[in-house]
Nucleic acid binder design. Structure first.
Lengths: 233, 233
DNA sequence: CGTTAGTTTGATTTAAGTCAAGGTGCGTGG
DNA sequence: CCACGCACCTTGACTTAAATCAAACTAACG
């Protein structure tokens, strides 16, 4: 196995403040793996033996309820940590992680988390900032779910996706991985039917273009008006 | 001003693993204050100059949306940190904190967070576990909002409140601070009318007793059946 | 080229919000 | 100490957003 090169990770926010030597130490302990589209990286409730960093690709984090409903907790993008349950004292993963496209992932055994945190304060710091940021985001989402209508939530979700995973095309900004109506429904707490109707009507109004597992935002400002409930009905 | 005694905080999970001397150092930097019922401890969007520990009482954390809707993010109970925005790299508070009853609060200037974290690894660790736990909780709440009906969410909210702030009485377990129908609505993303109707029907069924700003859970198991959607309609 | 996963759209139902009006317990000021 | 007023609570009637039910269409993949 060729050694992993530190250039893979040295630009990442997670590792700012670390010495090149530190990166090498960290990388030496990592295992890298590829996951094809739709492969499961880890399973909800499974023993949390590892934590992960997404080098390349997009990962869907999904919680399944006892009743069988699924909710997409978040999408993980290039350079982000995921499956960090162990870091916050959990024995098992609270959600499953599935590759939305072919992915390259670095993986470390859980017990190294504490080592890294102790040895590299900047790492501990950055990681804790990551968790903090996710808490903020998640709380914002609770507020959204509590106060906004489906239409606004779906518009907001699309805007966030374009920010995090948008790829400019001639028509506008396309979400850079395959995403179904069902996926969008699971992100926003609605049904695929409602999402389909919304996309149809937005397509008619010229805000988006969409097809099978594909959404392109044509008019961000227009969508933002919907998200903020400032548009003409 | 009399020095704060370390016995005030030494039993708290937040400080496990710290030496008595460490506690003294930490306490020496704290300012303690009392807040009467309904007093604002800090305001959303305000400059986050301090972080806080609730010694005694109950604090409501509330987010207000641009549209003026309010959502109760969480209740803080004895011994918990709050207003730790600075810890996760925020400049301003993302929510307001209001005393639900008369409260005693320890307060430190924000800049000490980094000092404490650097000087007392156990503190950094415990705090980071706290943030992690809140992330878990908040994500669970998103799932709830996305998949459960109002009835189940309200039942669940009451069960959580009794766990965190229940006081046994002859009738059952009473929530240990004044709480309105509106408050419960703001915790669960519904309206005071719907909460009122639910409480009325549960009172009739013998699951709860409630009055002005007061709720007592009489039959936890019964409520749990509702929360998990296992009850006879 | 057939099968299946994903999508669309119409019709109907329903959970919960909104609108409206009174009722009631409690703290305050006279 | 009492009564006045306000904050909180209840309940009925109606409306509506979004779910559910149902069916057909279509793109991609093997």
């Amino acid at each position: 196995m060729p050694a992993l090169d530190r250039s893979l990770i040295q630009g990442l926010p997670l590792f700012t403040g670390l010495q090149p030597d530190d990166l090498d130490v960290i990388l030496k302990a990592a295992r890298s793996a590829r996951y094809p589209r739709e492969a499961t990286i880890f399973e909800q409730e499974a023993d949390a033996h590892s934590f992960h960093l997404l080098l390349n690709g997009h990962v869907r984090v999904v919680r399944t309820t006892p009743g069988g409903d699924q909710v997409i907790t978040r999408y993980i993008n290039d350079g982000e940590l995921f499956g960090i349950a162990p870091a916050i004292g959990r024995k098992s993963y609270p959600a499953s992680a599935v590759a939305a496209v072919d992915c390259v992932v670095l993986t470390w055994p859980t017990h190294l988390w504490a080592d890294f945190a102790a040895r590299f304060p900047a790492f501990a710091d950055n990681a804790s900032r990551t968790v903090g940021a996710r808490l903020q985001e998640t709380q914002a989402r609770v507020v959204e779910m509590a106060t906004q209508q489906v239409e606004q939530r779906v518009a907001q979700a699309l805007l966030r996706l374009t920010e995090q995973a948008g790829r400019p095309t001639e028509d506008g900004v396309e979400i850079d991985f395959p995403i179904t109506r069902q996926d969008i429904a699971e992100m926003t707490g609605t049904t695929l039917h409602t999402v389909s109707r919304l996309l149809s009507s937005w397509e008619e109004a010229g805000f988006v273009k969409s097809g099978r597992q594909k959404v392109t935002i044509v008019d961000q400002e227009g969508l933002r008006k919907i998200a903020e409930n400032r548009h003409q009905k």
